[in-house]
């Protein structure tokens, strides 16, 4: 466990870890875990950049109300806090200059 990460998991998850990709980088996350929580625990600090100013954002409410944890999965922007970790998720950061959303 990396001691410098802002978040830690208080108990070892019994769920098997599966590989997902976040902006191309592989991550091992607990299967069925809340995606936003799992990304935070994995040390992801910036989930997206806003379409207005490009400001970085990360989960704020964790209950599906604020839309700050939006990530892009299969070309659709979705709330990470409303998704469960599944094997092989391809996640990208909306607003990343290198990503061409929808038009892909």
């Amino acid at each position: 466990m990396n001691p410098v990460l802002p978040f830690l998991e208080i108990e070892a998850s019994s769920a098997p870890r599966v590989e997902v990709r976040f902006d191309g980088a592989p991550l091992l996350l607990p299967l069925g875990a809340n995606l936003a929580a799992a990304l935070l625990a994995a040390g992801i600090e910036r989930f997206r950049n806003t379409p207005v100013s490009g400001a970085p954002r990360a989960p704020f409410c964790m209950m599906g109300a604020c839309f700050d944890c939006l990530v892009e999965i299969d070309g659709v922007q979705r709330q990470a806090c409303m998704i469960e970790v599944a094997e092989g998720l391809q996640i990208t950061r909306p607003g990343s200059p290198e990503v061409r959303h929808v038009a892909s």
Partner: peptide, 9 residues
């Protein structure tokens, strides 16, 4: 209707 903000489409 209006969608989320998107790159030029």
């Amino acid at each position: 209707l209006i969608t989320e903000k998107l790159p030029k489409l």
